[in-house]
């Protein structure tokens, strides 16, 4: 691990944000708290997707498969078999890991190009959706309803939105820190070479299969865990929300707008776009149906045109150019 990772861990900014954020559930009205929780869910999901999509450069549309496994399977295990949801979380994560390893292996074995990889992962995501819809054990098309959250921690209950906020804050931080850790570890180097040039990566000793599988599995396990926590917050395991490729598209969008491949970019994208989307919907949804989508789309297109590398590089540049920044300040000449 490079020392940079420990610098981030020990960074006062990180801990400052956490300390400031911790009391938010007591300060925010429930509507805004919901938006914040949703943002954190997407921070975690976009960051987990970034490991495959950003660092390894493989646009995987299978993320909903892992989120859905974490959500639907853990719920079904609890409702149909009475399996504790903590155990369900682990079982779903293990199954997500296996699915992820299988997809990565198929990609490697059949040397899928970029487009084929996108389509194959989409096909797996769709298959996941069909399995859930067609199998009553997983709730079928009507979904599953979890028992009310009474705050029993041992039953994977966190006491409604207050608890959900802290759980999601924790998961979001963990997912971002996993990104930071990978970028500062050999895996980060390997994934970046694989993204840029698979053959050249192999030529300098990178085991392409092993690290592609590693990236996919880490990404899937995180997504699955977030899926389980998310469904606990929603209480209703809705297949059309949780195992639909639409959720993946949103994640890809947030990560791209924020900055692919960087540790904080996807988090930034989710933190800006989720509230923007929700607030636009709240303000304009009743004025003219679809208007909020229209404005949201324009904002996203504008961001991509202005800064194709994402918002994070743009912010970094602005930060360096701020008044008083040491690095770029022209040398002052004594009068």
């Amino acid at each position: 691990m490079r020392p940079e990772f420990y610098k981030v861990l020990a960074s006062p900014v990180l801990w400052g944000i956490l300390i400031l954020a911790a009391p938010l559930p007591f300060l925010l009205p429930s509507y805004y708290l919901h938006i914040v929780i949703l943002s954190l869910v997407y921070v975690a999901l976009a960051s987990s997707w970034n490991i495959v999509g950003g660092m390894a450069g493989q646009i995987s549309l299978a993320h909903s498969l892992f989120i859905g496994t974490g959500a639907m399977l853990s719920t079904a295990l609890l409702l149909k078999l009475g399996i504790n949801m903590w155990v369900g979380l682990l079982i779903s994560a293990a199954i997500s890991a296996m699915l992820a390893a299988m997809i990565a292996w198929i990609d490697y074995r059949f040397r899928l190009g970029h487009l084929s990889f996108v389509l194959i992962t989409l096909a797996f995501a769709e298959m996941g959706g069909l399995v859930v819809e067609g199998w009553d054990f997983l709730g079928g098309a009507s979904g599953l309803l979890l028992p009310r959250d009474t705050g029993h921690f041992l039953d994977f209950q966190f006491g409604g939105s207050h608890g959900a906020f802290w759980v999601m804050l924790l998961l979001a931080v963990v997912c971002v820190l996993v990104n930071v850790a990978i970028l500062n570890a050999p895996l980060g180097y390997y994934l970046r070479t694989i993204r840029d040039n698979e053959n050249a990566a192999r030529a300098i000793g990178v085991n392409v299969l092993r690290y592609k599988v590693a990236a996919m599995v880490i990404s899937a396990v995180l997504a699955s865990i977030v899926g389980t926590a998310y469904v606990r917050y929603l209480t209703f395991a809705d297949p059309y929300l949780l195992i639909s490729p639409v959720i993946t598209i949103e994640i890809v969008l947030f990560a791209t707008v924020g900055g692919l491949g960087s540790a904080f970019g996807p988090a930034l994208g989710a933190l800006l776009l989720v509230p923007l989307g929700e607030i636009l919907r709240g303000q304009l949804g009743g004025v003219l149906p679809g208007l909020h989508y229209f404005i949201y789309g324009i904002v996203v297109i504008a961001v991509i045109l202005i800064t194709p590398q994402g918002l994070l590089p743009l912010f970094e540049r602005l930060w360096k150019r701020r008044p008083g920044a040491a690095a770029t300040r022209p040398p002052t000449v004594a009068p």
């Binding site: 970046r192 070479t193 993204r195 840029d196 040039n197 050249a200 300098i204």
Partner: peptide
């Protein structure tokens, strides 16, 4: 063989 997004040191 080049890598687009990495520095020479990274490579």
């Amino acid at each position: 063989q080049t890598f687009a997004d990495m520095t020479t040191l990274d490579v």
